[in-house]
Amino acid sequence: MKQTGSIKALLVKHEMILLWVIAVEVILFQVLGQNFLTAGNVSNIFRHSAEIGLLALVMTPVILTGGIDLSVGSLMGLCAVVFGMLVKVYGLDPLVAAGLTVLVGALGGGLNAGLVAGMGLRPLIVTLGTFSLFRGLAEALTHGSKSYSGFSDGFLALGNSDILGVPAQIWIVLVVGIVIWFLVHHTTYGRSLRAIGYGEEGARYAGLPVKRNISITYVMAGAVAGLAAVILVSRLGEARANAGMGYELLAITAVVLGGVSIFGGAGNVSGAVLGWIALAILNNGLTRISDYEILGEKVSSVARELSGLLTGLLLIAALALAICMKMLAAKRSAKQT
């Protein structure tokens, strides 16, 4: 009977575990690596993972409803190309172009929303379709190879300068993070997302606006994917069709690692943020590992390549762990009755 209570306790514990993981990562990379805990590198960790952070933040509400959005990475590609064209071909001011790009992202998310909430189709196949569609549009617009560069210094500063000693884009992540955190944990909207994730039918019986709120999560995910695209272009100084490739997986990994249940309902934003940080540190730390030689191979060069592989393994491990915990809890509660 205490089962759900202990799940909640576990969630809190989950975040403690993540903090420990992060601490171990930091110590490990500081010992094994070069210049890991320097102001410059810490700033880099965040600068280079800001886009993933944004995607993880907006993926959280989607997964809370029991859905998934595989299209955010591709949508970033489309948005990056749109932004590049707006600035370089149509000569728009980067700020105006950024606004329009976010709008395009929201429209892309709106397509997902219409198909998922409006037509009641399964999110995985819908967003798999738009995954292909958005990337395909980006490639079509650039004829597969064209890229846009040569943006103004003012715009490039967004991705490459500091404000108050913190990478400029991290301020944006912070603002988005606070908004999402507030929406999820302090509004009736956020509460309805959890209710939907636990049981869509039950939420409908309680008179909650199920379709509308599911739609909002996908539109929001699209808009923020557009924003992430702008930031990415600013950091790299180049807009290409392959922008954000594979980012959806990193975002999902961060969220699942952060203890948000892939089946919906349970989880919180702070967990997703910690999941993101743990992932970001891992990716950066591996590139910092000093030269040791084991069996004639340079450890550093291998380690540098490992981050993608580890991300995949980590995702499976996190999922399997969550399932095992659930089974254990179920067994315990079965014993009690």
Binding site: H186, R191, E201, G207
Partner: peptide, 29 residues
Amino acid sequence: RKHGVILEMAAAENMTMASHSRWFKGGIL
């Protein structure tokens, strides 16, 4: 169990579930 109560959510949350606009002006909990 399926429609009346959301088993995983807190008792208080269940009680206010159908009357959000009455308790939470502006949608803020």
